[in-house]
């Protein structure tokens, strides 16, 4: 093996979009590949877990883990990669703040398994068979990872050095991050490798946001013809932009969809959902409880709207009475 710095990629509970985003580096990936040795990347290259286990601790310069943590196997891999890596990076919303999978924290393990294996419309499972963690087959013990009670962000399981936010992170941020790592000029531990201001800072529609929103109605994007130029909030459409870290180059907004918050909150904020809630509610144009309630009825799913990517890392973490 060469003495080039070693880099690893791994995925846990994720959709694969983060892996795509690595490929989205396009020709830049060659530059990265030249600068480093990729020693582990299950999606793209044929390395095994035992290869990693065989490495000395700290042998990998940096591992980028995407996906949230739901199973014991993901936990094991997180611990393993933590041990083998000098730098562990949570890559993408799921590893960073729990991501969409952590919306499952609104349900119990039992509710999830029952739905998935028994009740989902596409399931035919008359005997209500469910996968078991341990199963004997032809005299061989077969094991499956444990399905944990909660979805967790990477840093809720192992120590994380840096975060690359986004669903998925942009190639630009990835490239910057890799170059930073290689430069050896490392930012303080715990840094989120994206700007620390909210979306509005870079939003192409910033100028169309009125000073006083005076919200009288919340509309869902599919209920309305969206003006392609005007601030979403000014149109009554919830945009997470004000409470979401910038750095995504406003891709959704350029695609005429509001920000849904995948970059997570700024460093100063402990709970992204509570913050957008506070900002939006403050701007509601009503004084009487009944009128306020009527307007709030427009937010059909506050948890799914405000914590779409961050329930695991929210202050309450989950539906508490699951």
């Amino acid at each position: 093996m060469s003495d080039k710095p070693k880099i690893a990629f791994y995925w846990c509970a994720s959709c694969g979009g983060c892996e795509e985003s690595i490929v989205d580096l396009a020709e830049d990936i060659l530059e990265v590949a030249q600068a480093v040795d990729i020693v582990f990347w299950p999606v793209a290259m044929d390395f095994k877990r035992k290869d990693v286990e065989a490495m000395p601790d700290g042998a990998i310069l940096a591992t980028l883990v995407n996906g949230s943590i739901r199973t014991s196997e993901q936990e094991e891999m997180a611990h393993l990669l933590r041990r083998k890596s000098q730098i562990l990076i949570a890559y993408g919303s799921c590893a960073h703040t729990g991501g969409v999978p952590s919306l499952a924290n609104q349900f119990t393990r039992e509710e999830i398994l029952r739905y998935v294996y028994e009740e989902a419309p596409s399931v035919v499972n008359e005997n209500r068979v469910r996968p078991q963690p341990r199963h004997g087959h032809n005299g061989t013990a077969v094991t499956l990872p444990e399905f944990r009670g909660l979805v967790r962000s990477l840093d809720q399981v192992v120590e994380v050095d840096y975060y690359l936010p986004g669903c998925p992170p942009t190639p630009k941020l990835l490239k910057q991050a890799v170059l930073t790592l290689l430069s050896g000029n490392l930012p303080p531990k715990g840094t989120v490798l994206a700007p620390d201001t909210a979306q509005c800072d870079q939003c192409p529609r910033k100028e169309t946001k009125p000073v006083d929103l005076k919200i009288t109605e919340f509309k869902r994007p599919h209920w309305t013809q969206i003006d392609p130029e005007k601030c979403f909030l000014a149109q009554g459409i919830i945009c997470m932009g004000p409470a979401t870290r910038s750095g995504c180059e406003a891709q959704c907004i350029r695609g005429n969809m509001p920000c849904t918050g995948c970059f997570g909150p700024t460093t100063r904020v402990r709970d992204q959902g509570a913050k957008i809630l506070s900002a939006l509610a403050s701007s509601v144009n009503a004084r009487e409880p009944e009128d306020i309630e009527k307007i709030m009825d427009g937010i059909v799913d506050p948890v799914g709207t405000f914590y779409r990517y961050s329930l695991a890392k929210s202050l309450l973490r989950a539906k508490v009475t699951r």
Binding site: L277, S278, P289, P302, K319, V320
Partner: peptide, 19 residues
């Protein structure tokens, strides 16, 4: 009044989170 509005929305959120 700002408190009142936040309270109304927060109550909904808490309900959905089992509080």
């Amino acid at each position: 009044y700002k408190t009142l509005r936040r309270y109304h929305l927060l109550r909904r959120l808490l309900r959905d989170l089992g509080i």
